[in-house]
Design a protein around this nucleic acid. Structure first.
Lengths: 230, 230
DNA sequence: TCAAAAGTGTTCACCGTACACCCATGG
DNA sequence: CCATGGGTGTACGGTGAACACTTTTGA
C-alpha cells in the first residue's frame, strides 16, 4: 500500500534454499548443483532462489524446485530461517530452508543435467557453500522425526512399492537396520496400505507383492484419533 | 561487501514476533501488547520488531524480548517464517516467529505496564492483528511437543518448585488432566530432579517438598543415551 | 477432630522387540 | 534340485494407565 510506515527500517534479501530428498537403489540422496555464478562459482550448493515481491516463501520454494526438476505439487515443508549476518559474503541475505521429498524416478533427468545438478548419497556429499551443510543436517533431523510420525515416506517411493523397498527406505532415513518381521507387522497393524495383486518380479524369482498407500483410509483413521507411528 | 551481486532482486522487511509464555497460578499465559502505532493501532498483538543490519534473527528476538521484559538469557526458539504477501497491510513484511519461556515471577512488571502489555490466559486471548493468531497456535503446538521431549518446562517455573506445580504446568500445556501418582512416578523415574529439605508452606498445612531441576545430572544422562519423555 | 493437600504401590493390558523356519520360483 | 529372496508367528519383558488410602498439621 506504499504507506511507508516502516520507512526507516533495514531491508534484506530473502532467499529460499531447498534440500531435495530422493530415494534410489536403497539409498537416500539429495540433489545438489554446481554453481555457475558468483559467489561460490564452481562449488556445490543446494538449489535456491530469491523471494519475489508477489509470492510467499512456499511459492518461492515450489518455483525453485519446479525450475530444477520439472515437478509440481511436491511434498515440501519449511525448515528454518538462517540469518547469520555474514552467511552470504556478497550481501546480507536471510535464507529460509525448505525440504522436499520426490520420487526420484519421476523427475526430469535432462533438466538436472542442464543445471549441472547431481544426486549424492547422504554420506558422499561434497562440502557445500555458506551454511548449506548445516541446512542439510537440519533437514535430515526433521525428516527422521517427520517420517516417524507421519506417512510422508511414501512421497519418496513410486506409487506401487514392495515391503522390502519401504523397509529399506526407513532404514536409510533412520540410518539403522530394522527387523523384517517386526517392520512388516507394524506396517500391517497400521492398516493404511492396500496389497495389490501385482508383483514386482525385478528382484527375486518368487516376486514380491506391491502395495499402495491408501490416503483416504489414512485420513479417515486420523479423523477417528488414529496416529501414524513407525 | 557491497558487490551488488544480487542487485536486481527484490528486498523485503524482516520482522520477528515473539510468543512469550509464562505460567502463573496454574495457568499458561502469553504476553500481548496493545499497539500504540499504525497499522493496527489499539489492537492487540504479539511483541515484535524489525531485523537490523548488524544482527541475526536470534539476536533480534532476544533484543525485542529484553526490551519488553528486562530479561536476558531466556529460553527462545525459532518457530516459523510467515510470508503471506499481504500479511502486513502497510508494507511487504516477512515475519519470523519465536517463542520464549519465562518464569513469570522474575520479569519487570513496570516495563510491562509502560509498554501497555498484559498477560492473557490461553483461553482468554483477544483476537490479534495480522496472522498473529496463527503464530500463537503454532507456538502452542511446538511447546507441547518440545516440553514432552525436552526438559524445558522448568524454564517456566521458579528454580524451586513443588511436584504439584510441575504437574499443573504439564496439565496446562497439554490441556488435559494427569494422574498424580503416575505423573510423580514418571518424574521420579527420570531421576533428574533434586529433592530439597525445604518445603513450600504457602498452599497446604502439611507443606510440600520443593525440587530443583539438576541440569548437570540431566546432561550426563543424555551423554549416556538417556532421553527425556513426559 | 476435621478439613485439605501431600505422599505413596500395585495390577493389568498392551506394545515393542527378539528371534527362525518354510515357501515359491527360475535357472 | 538348489540358491535366492519372500513371507510368516510367538514368547517375553517393559512401559503406560487405572486406581484408593494414609499422613500431616493448623485451625
Amino acid at each position: 500500500m506504499g504507506l511507508n510506515t516502516y520507512s526507516s527500517e533495514d531491508k534484506a534479501l530473502l532467499a529460499v534454499d531447498c534440500i531435495i530428498f530422493g530415494f534410489d537403489k536403497g539409498d537416500l540422496k539429495i540433489l545438489l548443483i554446481k554453481r555457475t555464478f558468483e559467489p561460490g562459482l564452481g562449488e556445490w550448493s543446494l538449489i535456491g532462489g530469491f523471494l519475489k515481491k508477489e509470492e510467499n516463501l512456499d511459492q518461492a520454494a515450489s518455483r525453485v524446485l519446479h525450475h530444477l526438476t520439472g515437478l509440481r505439487d511436491i511434498y515440501m515443508e519449511q525448515l528454518y530461517a538462517f540469518s547469520k549476518v555474514d552467511r552470504d559474503p556478497a550481501e546480507r541475505t536471510i535464507s529460509v530452508a525448505y525440504y522436499a521429498l520426490i520420487d526420484i524416478a519421476t523427475h526430469d533427468t535432462s533438466l538436472i543435467k542442464q543445471n549441472s545438478a547431481q544426486w549424492f548419497g547422504l554420506k558422499d556429499c561434497p562440502k557445500l557453500i555458506f551454511d548449506h551443510d548445516r541446512m542439510v543436517l537440519h533437514a535430515i533431523a526433521r525428516l527422521r522425526r517427520k517420517t516417524s510420525n507421519n506417512p510422508i515416506g511414501f512421497e519418496l517411493l513410486p506409487e506401487k512399492f514392495t515391503m522390502k523397498q519401504l523397509q529399506n527406505l526407513y532404514e536409510s532415513i533412520l540410518d539403522k537396520e530394522l527387523d523384517k518381521r517386526n517392520f512388516i507387522n507394524k506396517v500391517n497393524a497400521l492398516d493404511i496400505l492396500v496389497k495389490l495383486e501385482e508383483k514386482d518380479m525385478s528382484v527375486s524369482r518368487k516376486g514380491a507383492y506391491l502395495f499402495k498407500f491408501d490416503e483416504e483410509k489414512y485420513k479417515a483413521k486420523v479423523e477417528e484419533g488414529f496416529s501414524f507411528k513407525l
